[in-house]
Amino acid sequence: MKTSELKDLTIAIVGGGYAGAAAAKALTLLGADVHVYEQATRIREVGAGIGLRPPTLNLFREWGIFDAMAAVSSPSDYFEILSATGDSIMKEEWPGIHDYAEETKTRLIHRGDFIETFLKVLPADRVHLGYRMETITDEGGSARIGFANGEQIRADLVIGADGIRSVVRKQLFSDAEPVFSGEHAYRIVISAADAHGLVVDDNLRMYLDAKGTKVYLLPLRHRNQLSYDITCLSEDDSWTPRISRDFLVGLMDGFDPRLGRITRELDMAELTCRAVFDIDPVRTWHSDSVTLLGDAAHAMLHHQGQGANQAIQDAGGLTDALRQADSIPSALALFQRTRKPVTDELQRISRQSWDAGKVEDVFPGQKPAAAGSLEVRS
């Protein structure tokens, strides 16, 4: 679309998480009138650590926000997988580090810092809190949204970035429910001083045992913290299961004793407990004036660490499509055509999880590599 056409666009983004914040920044750079509508009444520091991959960071350079993200993250050289007792199974440099004009290492960041940094680079009057979407209608040349507070808006383009339980997806594209993975994830951020010597550098490590339990250690040394994640098999598909300290400690039987000590000392009030879900690939992401983006389009399991990265790369892909196409409908078709094969494959790979005895099954015919090596770059 022509620059003048892009500057005349009104764009409403439903959801202020990874996907919505990234899309707002990228599309604002086009000159469009972009507004984000988030149902939370305030932005809180929630969640744990994530790894931002080189393709994502290269987009941040293009958008002029790399330095802001670098200030609240740590560069990481490699990912290591270990047995429960700490024997190395594989250790490999993050892929993509040398793919760009400047060396670009994966960076480890807290989700709260990520969202806060994005919101700081957006005009304050473009982010609207306390707006829970109830209805959406594609009217052909525009779309209309109704919110629980009684307000309604129209926009030339509406982006559904409202997560795995997306209302936009359910009302317009698919009423299929999220799919339970048979796993739970228990997450917390602790002080590096409470990590019993396991925070030694800025590299992500995962311990796994033969029972399917995985422990992820993601250092946040710029915060002097550690993001600690235990993922285990479970038949309980409630969204927020309740567990006990004794249960968690029992999961650490056979693991490095230091992991047992960390687990025994956790503040249970700060622990996030959730059943792990993804969604089956959605056949169609868009109509004439509405598109899905991020988890709303392709929520995937966390085993490949790709959820946030693919949401951000969606934002880049949608921005490119709007520049290249001659209309919004053709841009949305191009966006889906470009991004969907990538995310479909990552959804498939992420469902394979990890198994200490089946590494070669995940990487047939090639040298075992870190989880990041499976990423399909866009």
Rank of each mutant, 00 (worst) to 15 (best):
residue 77 D to R: 09
residue 371 A to V: 11
residue 254 G to S: 08
residue 332 L to F: 10
residue 195 A to I: 09
residue 37 Y to Q: 06
residue 28 T to A: 04
residue 21 A to C: 04
residue 235 E to F: 05
residue 104 T to H: 06
residue 278 D to G: 08
residue 291 T to P: 15
residue 24 A to Y: 01
residue 183 E to D: 02
residue 298 H to P: 07
residue 245 R to G: 02
residue 127 V to I: 11
residue 303 H to Q: 04
residue 116 E to D: 12
residue 260 G to P: 07
residue 13 I to K: 00
residue 317 G to A: 08
residue 119 L to N: 06
residue 183 E to I: 02
residue 69 M to R: 03
residue 264 R to V: 03
residue 244 S to K: 03
residue 68 A to N: 14
residue 165 R to L: 05
residue 233 L to C: 09
residue 96 G to D: 03
residue 54 P to D: 10
residue 285 W to I: 13
residue 203 N to E: 13
residue 207 Y to Q: 08
residue 191 S to D: 15
residue 221 R to E: 15
residue 129 L to A: 04
residue 213 T to D: 00
residue 335 F to T: 00
residue 173 F to S: 04
residue 293 L to I: 07
residue 74 S to N: 15
residue 334 L to M: 14
residue 99 D to E: 12
residue 199 V to W: 13
residue 84 A to L: 09
residue 163 G to D: 02
residue 275 A to M: 08
residue 130 G to M: 06
residue 353 S to D: 14
residue 83 S to E: 13
residue 268 M to G: 05
residue 181 S to N: 02
residue 371 A to Y: 12
residue 330 S to L: 07
residue 304 Q to W: 05
residue 37 Y to R: 06
residue 65 I to D: 11
residue 243 I to R: 00
residue 378 S to T: 12
residue 192 A to M: 04
residue 310 Q to M: 11
residue 211 K to D: 12
residue 19 A to P: 12
residue 372 G to S: 15
residue 36 V to T: 01
residue 118 F to G: 00
residue 253 D to L: 02
residue 216 Y to A: 03
residue 265 E to F: 00
residue 266 L to T: 05
residue 192 A to W: 01
residue 135 T to G: 03
residue 21 A to H: 02
residue 75 P to V: 12
residue 204 L to C: 00
residue 290 V to R: 01
residue 49 G to A: 07
residue 61 R to F: 08
residue 263 T to G: 03
residue 246 D to L: 11
residue 45 E to D: 15
residue 374 L to R: 15
residue 339 R to S: 12
residue 69 M to F: 15
residue 181 S to L: 02
residue 40 A to C: 11
residue 167 V to S: 01
residue 277 F to P: 08
residue 343 T to G: 06
residue 223 R to D: 13
residue 40 A to I: 07
residue 51 G to E: 08
residue 108 L to M: 11
residue 360 E to F: 13
residue 274 R to K: 15
residue 356 A to C: 13
residue 98 H to T: 09
residue 55 P to K: 10
residue 375 E to D: 03
residue 70 A to Q: 07
residue 84 A to Y: 01
residue 131 Y to S: 02
residue 19 A to D: 10
residue 275 A to P: 03
residue 307 G to I: 10
residue 211 K to E: 08
residue 349 I to V: 07
